[in-house]
Write a protein that binds this DNA or RNA. Structure first.
Lengths: 205, 205
DNA sequence: TGCAAAGTTGCAGTGAGTGCAGGTTTTTAC
DNA sequence: GTAAAAACCTGCACTCACTGCAACTTTGCA
């Protein structure tokens, strides 16, 4: 049966095209702004027809964000894989930190540019959150399973949503400061675990 | 300076039109689904031209959500108006509960239908969050001012984002349960203030 | 009553996004 | 090695979203 590398030429080309489109989208939008870039521009830069673009992405915004359909299940598995003596919040913390480390190892520079673009285009932020929705659903499912509650109970929903909030804030600060994303995310998650009590040092008039 | 009733016929008509468009949008989308409703349909139902529709809303989704541009400043003011002995988190809690009560007093039924529609169309959820962005920015500004930190510091950003998360979860549960939104929101905010510790009763295998 | 400001509408045009059909490339089976 | 099958790419035609512009109508005000 000649069971070899198992990765056909077809799939490799598909990934190449997808990647080319995504990179072109980020680069062009960074250069010219979101409304001054058409799908045709992106397609041309990636050397495919505009029609083909839509075989890969639902639109400009999707191409910029390049959502990863496997991220959700991966995060869910990570949550369940954490040691049983951790609280749910702690398990989410470890799972997200591990996931972020893995993602960034892949393509640090692209992610950074992507996030800078997102900061400059609030519409993209909305779409990022939307993609985050699918991910958040899986995260919530993992949390629910871990604590033995239904997935539509307040607690899993809220922990998932709060983790998403922490992630957004960390990314926002990442694109404007030089600190490692890992540290920023850890800090945000810790603040939430502390119940968002008033910050220690704040001098009033 | 003739500072009188100050509400001309013009402005009243504008508000009527805006309201008619918003209601028509929610009703039609609830009936036929988001992609089976065109701007033309909505305009026809509100008895204006399609071109006029765009003088009021940026698109279908905006019309469904009917964002209130004054909500942001109002929330910010509410946060600052809370007693000084409250923690920032507690101040946010009180401000949001008051705001929700005021909003709902206006148009309870419309809001409920709106939220049901949002639940069924994740794209709208993204847009809701986007509109929420503007609001969240004002909320963050209020928090920052209250605690004496810059508005781009982690703490205000995170408290604002977490409050947004609590709000989303409360709304999600509101549209699927019968409980009052006020109670659901209070519960969610309290859970966050408790650091999202493991829920009290959860029996493992 | 008459002028200015604001609102409404139609028209024309760009661009997003989709279904369909024909052509090309990769895979699979013989 | 070759031919059928499956997957992919592409152009075409179409609907709909959205915008600028230029009348035209209504409201506000002196």
């Amino acid at each position: 049966m000649t069971t070899q590398a198992a990765e056909g030429l077809r799939d490799r080309k598909k990934r190449q095209t997808r990647r080319a489109l995504g990179q072109a989208a980020v680069r062009l939008v960074a250069e010219h702004g979101l409304d001054h870039v058409t799908v045709e521009d992106i397609s041309a830069a990636a050397d495919v027809s505009p029609r083909t673009f839509f075989n890969y992405f639902a639109g400009k915004e999707d191409a910029v964000l390049g959502p990863d359909p496997e991220a959700g299940p991966r995060v869910r598995a990570r949550v369940l894989a954490q040691p049983a003596d951790l609280s749910a919040a702690a398990a989410v913390r470890e799972a997200l930190l591990a996931e972020v480390a893995a993602e960034l190892a892949d393509d640090r520079e692209l992610w950074l540019q992507r996030m800078r673009v997102v900061q400059q285009h609030p519409v993209l932020l909305a779409r990022l959150f939307f993609g985050g929705e699918a991910l958040e659903r899986d995260l919530v499912a993992g949390i629910a399973e871990r604590v033995g509650l239904p997935a539509d109970d307040t607690y899993p929903l809220l922990l998932g949503a709060a983790a998403g909030a922490a992630f957004r804030v960390a990314v926002a600060r990442w694109s404007s400061t030089a600190a490692p994303l890992h540290d920023l995310l850890a800090e945000a998650l810790d603040l939430i675990a502390a119940g968002l009590a008033d910050p220690p040092r704040h001098h009033r008039g």
